[in-house]
């Protein structure tokens, strides 16, 4: 790949500012390890962002610093040694009964804190889980949408008034083979719908031909694929008939007529 083009594509800025997608991030990080000039470009932009941000700093209220330092001095993840020191500080000269009460309160508050911390942790974890499943659903919906659009497009071809339908019927070699050609005379697009064609060995393919003035014109090869309801073939402006033959994989220049599978003539020529 051309690293120079990649560097000036805007990906560096997009990555540093957190606007790159997960896929782009992964690729960028992989390439950074591979190309030192890419890592250098990233460093350079990071430095200018940092410099700019520092130059445009706005002083926050003093109270934030106080609260932050307090929070990290008393981190929420209390462990046992800390509860003991706390207890010692408050109970050394108190009589036993009160000490017991204080000890109970201290223990209770620790339990409560740990409980709270646990729930907070669970909530944030659940939140992350929900988010990822939400993303998954959105991706699935998008996929369904694109499938639906494809079906709608295919439907459009079938119902277009400009489209001529040619019914290809089986020849003597393959009496059961049949297919339909949808030929759009306005756009010259040719679509093929397989109705019944046997599967071929992997080194063979079907090939579609248009017959023009008695001469065959190659309209492309196709496989019998159950997922594809409609296949777009090569365009043709003229055709008196369409024919399908079996050819070596990749197709032939001229049709192997003895392998002709089906044939269909147009009622009126264009």
């Amino acid at each position: 790949m051309n690293v120079k083009d990649y560097i000036v594509s805007g990906i560096v800025e997009s990555y540093v500012l957190g606007l790159a997608s997960g896929e782009e991030r992964a690729e960028f990080e992989r390439l950074c390890a591979e190309y030192p000039e890419l890592a250098a470009a990233r460093d350079e932009f990071e430095e200018s962002v940092e410099k700019f941000a520092l130059a445009n700093a706005v002083k926050p209220p003093e109270s934030v610093k106080v609260r932050f330092l307090e929070a990290i001095q008393n981190p929420p993840s209390l462990n046992q040694t800390k509860t003991i020191t706390m207890e010692k500080a408050t109970t050394p000269v108190r009589p036993m009964r009160q000490g017991g009460f204080l000890r109970f309160m201290a223990a209770a508050s620790v339990v409560l804190l740990i409980g709270c911390a646990y729930f907070l942790y669970r909530f944030s974890e659940q939140n992350a889980e929900l988010r990822s499943s939400n993303q998954e659903l959105a991706a699935r919906a998008q996929k369904s949408d694109s499938i639906l659009n494809k079906i709608a497009d295919e439907q459009k071809v079938v119902s277009d008034p400009n489209v001529t339908v040619v019914n290809l019927v089986g020849t003597q070699t393959a009496p059961k083979s049949s297919a339909n050609i949808y030929w759009d005379s306005a756009s010259t697009n040719v679509y093929l719908v397989v109705k019944n064609m046997p599967q071929l060995p992997s080194d063979k393919q079907y090939q579609l031909w248009a017959l023009i003035d008695g001469k065959p014109k190659d309209l492309g090869v196709f496989d019998v694929n159950k997922e594809k309801f409609i296949v777009k073939m090569k365009n043709t402006q003229k055709a008196e008939a369409f024919a399908i033959t079996i050819e070596q994989k990749g197709g032939s220049v001229s049709p192997t007529l003895e392998k002709m599978q089906s044939l269909g003539k147009l009622k009126q020529s264009q």
Binding site: N56, K65, L69
Partner: peptide, 16 residues
């Protein structure tokens, strides 16, 4: 180190 971090970067982060 956290005090240093705060003193040097809180303004830049607060701005954004």
């Amino acid at each position: 180190a956290y005090k240093y971090l705060y003193d040097n970067y809180s303004g830049a982060l607060y701005s954004i």
